[in-house]
Every structure is written in structure tokens, then in C-alpha cells.
């Protein structure tokens, strides 16, 4: 079956009733590839693209509220450096025009550029159930394992919330200039209160934060010594693997390089 609900309640009801038998469909940029490449054949689809306000991005009381269907092209226009820059490095223009933030969160790949950026700004993910209602969980609790998340089989991702007043920085290392899969990517964020978030992609089974390094910076500030100590700490905290894209040694070293580079950038830049 291919469900195409026109209302959120209807979508939640179908998902609540059918659970993992139904596969939510946004831009389809991950799921269609998976279907083409593997033997995975979802029984039913739940096409969310006809829901009202599905692609809305609004400002609400000091927060950005992203609807599930906000595309990377939309995110690319946000005045939030890490998220916008990360969004603009996803795929090519066609992928960015159709791929959604909820899809990025649902796939939960450790190479998910959008996930890394959201991790750096303490975003909150809204998960909604037909009867239990909505729950909001911090993003670092959302990822639970390799391509596993806190999303239950009968829930839908309905939105993402993030603060507007964080300073952020982003860097992605890939083999080419666009349509580029990360070898390593990093997004760092700093709250007005001085909280620091250092998020990395492709260096562990899940998008991860290097909490020991964050503590070093939160304690000592962005001094040269603290930045170096944080970089060293990052290289110990990450757990990259050797694969056909890059070696673990390279990835680990790059985590240190990006720590230094992005922390210095946060130190210099006042906006973002």
C-alpha cells in the first residue's frame, strides 16, 4: 500500500496502527537507493509529503522549528552556519531539493551531515505518537547505535527544534567538491552561556560528541593550550575504522586537525 495522508493525525494513526510494516517516505533519497541496491522491499509506504506545513521552517521564541520535511536546500538558507553549511554539502542540488532533515535523522547514518550539525547545537527531536502524543528528546539521546535511534516503530519524527543564538562552525573532508561523502566531518557549537558541543561524523558507529574535549574547553575557555588539549583528547575519544573510504589513522588525525581549526574559528568569529 502507498498511503498518502493529507493530515498529520491520519499519518500518525497509520503509523501507530502498522508500526514497522509501514516505511515513512519523505524525499526518498535514502530509501529509494536502498531499495535499488538491496533486497529490502518495504511492505507499505507512508508518503508524508502531502501533510500541511510539512516543509515549514519557522522561528518560535528564540528557536528555529524545523518541520520534518524541511529540505537541505531550505536548511542551507538558515543563518546558522554549521547547519546551513552542512546542508549545502549534502549530495547535489537535486538531492538537497528533496532530501529532508527527518530522513537524515531517520537513516541515522554516522555520515549524516545534517545529524552532525544538529548534534553541535543541542537540537531537540520531536517524536509523535497517535495517542501517546508528542515527546521531545535531546539529540544526543536520539542516536542509540549504528543506524539505531530512539524513534519507536509506531512514532513519526514531526520536527526538530534548535536555538537561534548559538555560534557554530563546520568542516567536511571529502574526496571532491560536491556530491561528496564525508571521510570525516565535524560541527562545533557554542551557546551564549559558554556551553561547547563538538560533534563528529564518520568516526564512530554513530554521530558522536567528544565530551571530554568539550569539558576541557568549557573549563579553560578557548585558549591555545586548551584547544591543543582538546584536540589531543578528541583523537583519543573517537573510534574510527579502516574502510574503503579512508584509514582509521587518517580519520583520527583529521579529528584533531578539525578540532583545532573549528575551535579557533569559534574563537575568532562573533556571528554564526
Amino acid at each position: 500500500m502507498f498511503f498518502q495522508p493529507r493530515h498529520v493525525d491520519e499519518a500518525l494513526e497509520i503509523r501507530g496502527r502498522m508500526g514497522s510494516d509501514v516505511t515513512p517516505l519523505g524525499g526518498g533519497t535514502d530509501i529509494v537507493v536502498t531499495i535499488n541496491k538491496t533486497s529490502m522491499r518495504p511492505k507499505h509506504f507512508l508518503d508524508l509529503t502531502h501533510l500541511p506545513d510539512y516543509t515549514h521552517v519557522v522561528r518560535d521564541n528564540g528557536n528555529w522549528v524545523l518541520s520534518a520535511g524541511a529540505t537541505f536546500s531550505q536548511l542551507g538558507k538558515l543563518p546558522m552556519k554549521a547547519l546551513a553549511a552542512a546542508a549545502m554539502t549534502v549530495g547535489g542540488a537535486a538531492i538537497r531539493n528533496t532530501g529532508t532533515i527527518a530522513g537524515n535523522l531517520g537513516t541515522a547514518s554516522p555520515a549524516g551531515d545534517g545529524c552532525v550539525a544538529l548534534m553541535a547545537i543541542d537540537a531537540e527531536v520531536e517524536l509523535t505518537h497517535a495517542t501517546r502524543g508528542r515527546r521531545t528528546i535531546p539529540i544526543h539521546e536520539y542516536f542509540t547505535g549504528f543506524r539505531r535511534t530512539a524513534l519507536l516503530a509506531d512514532e513519526l519524527i514531526t520536527g526538530v527544534r534548535l536555538r537561534t543564538d548559538w555560534r557554530t562552525a563546520w568542516y567536511k573532508i571529502g574526496k571532491r567538491g560536491s556530491i561528496n561523502i564525508s571521510l570525516v566531518c565535524a560541527a562545533f557549537g557554542m551557546s551564549p552561556e559558554g556551553g561547547v558541543r563538538m560533534a563528529y561524523g564518520c568516526v564512530a558507529p554513530i554521530v558522536m560528541r567528544t565530551r571530554l574535549a568539550e569539558e576541557i574547553i568549557e573549563k579553560d575557555g578557548l585558549t591555545d593550550a586548551a584547544i591543543e588539549a582538546a584536540a589531543q583528547s578528541v583523537m583519543k575519544e573517537v573510534a574510527p575504522i579502516d574502510d574503503h573510504r579512508a584509514s582509521a589513522n587518517y580519520r583520527r588525525a583529521m579529528c584533531g586537525v578539525l578540532a583545532r581549526r573549528l575551535l579557533r574559528e569559534l574563537r575568532i568569529k562573533n556571528t554564526g
Partner: peptide, 16 residues
């Protein structure tokens, strides 16, 4: 062959 696809067989794009 680890990369029999254009996701991992990296060809130059306009940007490169």
C-alpha cells in the same frame, strides 16, 4: 570490488 557505484567511485564534478 569495494566501490562498484558512483557513491564511492569518485569522479570529478564541476566543483573539482
Amino acid at each position: 570490488m569495494r566501490n562498484p557505484n558512483f557513491t564511492d567511485y569518485i569522479l570529478p564534478t564541476f566543483r573539482d
